[in-house]
Design a protein around this nucleic acid. Sequence first.
DNA 1: TTGAAAGCGCTAACAT
DNA 2: ATGTTAGCGCTTTCAA
Lengths: 338, 338
Amino acid sequence: MTIKDVAQHCGVSVSTVSRVLNKHPDVSERVRSKVMRAVEELHYVPNSSARDLVCAASDAVGLVVRGVGNPFFLDVFHAVESTIAEAGYTMFVQNIHPGEDELRAGAQLVRSKKLRGLILLGGCFDYNADDVALLDVPFVCCSYTNSFGNLDEKAYSSVTIDDRAEAHRAVHYLVKNGHRRIAVLLESTDDRSISELRYMGYRQALEENGIAFDEALVLQTRGYGMDAAYDAVCEALKKELSFSALFCISDSMAVAAMKALHDAGRSVPKDCSVIAIDGIEMSAYSIPTLTTLSQPKHEMGEMSVRLLLDMIEGHTANRHVVLETEPRRGGSVCRICD
Amino acid sequence: MTIKDVAQHCGVSVSTVSRVLNKHPDVSERVRSKVMRAVEELHYVPNSSARDLVCAASDAVGLVVRGVGNPFFLDVFHAVESTIAEAGYTMFVQNIHPGEDELRAGAQLVRSKKLRGLILLGGCFDYNADDVALLDVPFVCCSYTNSFGNLDEKAYSSVTIDDRAEAHRAVHYLVKNGHRRIAVLLESTDDRSISELRYMGYRQALEENGIAFDEALVLQTRGYGMDAAYDAVCEALKKELSFSALFCISDSMAVAAMKALHDAGRSVPKDCSVIAIDGIEMSAYSIPTLTTLSQPKHEMGEMSVRLLLDMIEGHTANRHVVLETEPRRGGSVCRICD
DNA sequence: TTGAAAGCGCTAACAT
DNA sequence: ATGTTAGCGCTTTCAA
């Protein structure tokens, strides 16, 4: 069932059918309705591959997400989506797995949909020049930047928070509240990614406050999931590890950590304070509400789109924007006096 | 940058490049490596639209999800994904918005990617024959079925739980624990969808147990979100509405409800028991752990794929599978003695 | 082992 | 207002 079948069915040419389908103005009402009826009757559905192939560059941009389902990404995603729509552009989304190559996926999307630009939501922190050469349109890295690579700053745009500084801020907040035995919950101290960056902030905050680093207080999980976080905290508690506060590299891990503390008979925040970075919806409904540094998710999405469209429309240069988190004071941190 | 450019760059024909790219056996090693090098150097990325257009029907099936980010769908999604991969098929995913037409979206996907079948994850409960005529491949509705439409059972497959019966079961469980003043938290009593079905189960359970229905105990929210659920419960509590138990149509709404109860000074389950249906990850980490009827998410995904592949490969008929939930005993329900 | 050429379904000039 | 036709980038016969 192709456009040709529809044309034959109506006794018109394929271009006429195409015109009707694309709402071109100069088609007689008689023909238009005849075609529409045929389309209905025959249950004709256009082949978008064929359409994409022939169409000139559209006003479309792409979004490659490394794991929708990540609640943090989801919020940014929605912001990107609505901002793009407001600007009169359309958007194509592609979800990829951790482990998949977001640049290659993006490049394919750009090629097949003739996109004008690309936003990458969650990706590697260590690109090099060859990796990004695949992309022949402007692109912006949203929520991450090239912290561990050697990519030229002028070759890409990014919108992030300063992960290291924000982690520092979170830990510093605990110190200001009298905590000295501060544990950290993370996936890895050297993943060349967000975990490592936030760990660096943790270390720095300890150092600046004259707190000796204790390896035992680094609670390493086997993944970013809640289950892994829960297990890691349980294990630490079983070992009678003593700490008065816990800095978690993500909200969801913090929620699981609070549950683990609770299940072990420790009250949050009385027996142990908990702080994190992210500010996802779920942690606003935990008991107690999680104290966290909330990422400006909406702003990040919006800003990413703005940078991209500026480049597309104004041919401006690549830029790097660093946003700040917004502290959300929950009930999971309390003052300690010793 | 097309296959033609690569061909010219190497001084070979496009068909040779195509062969190399598609790993055809009969290409000389010399030419193969020459082409590969050119592909690298030129950063050539194939245009998948062009490829899809020309390729014959693949071993690919589609998955249309109404809102990834819905944590329930996310789990099913993963199950579908891995099952399809195991079977040696590939999968194309398309996320759509509530409000968008999943059948049309599915039909387009099928057309452009030449899919062999389709799985719809979350869709309307009231199709009619004309709607599904767009689809010329077998399809299975996952997590919903045609409860409110007049579609012929033989025209489609489905994998679901019995929403009405499970809601009945949840409420009945509360009754068995001594509760009589049981409120329900839902989005709508007549949305021709999941909310309505679960509401029917609630009503039925009350009736069967000789409990008079009290309209005041129907807590209606302005949406499926946690914020809406929180607000609705807060409002009910402000009105001094008295109930000893609350049945929520979803886990996420239940978590928000527990928070609202907590913030109003009511202890769960001592002052109010809470039960729900879904069994998402988050509610396992709430305090207390939510008591819920957990949907067999993995099984649902797996079964959907199995039904689909059976139809594709064995040309078997459409089937309808109803699975049962698995009660997850948390700490949010307690016995009442009065 | 390689190249030439047809054609997938569609849109957009260009004719009429 | 409508039809004819030339590709879009690719795979795949068919010949050489």
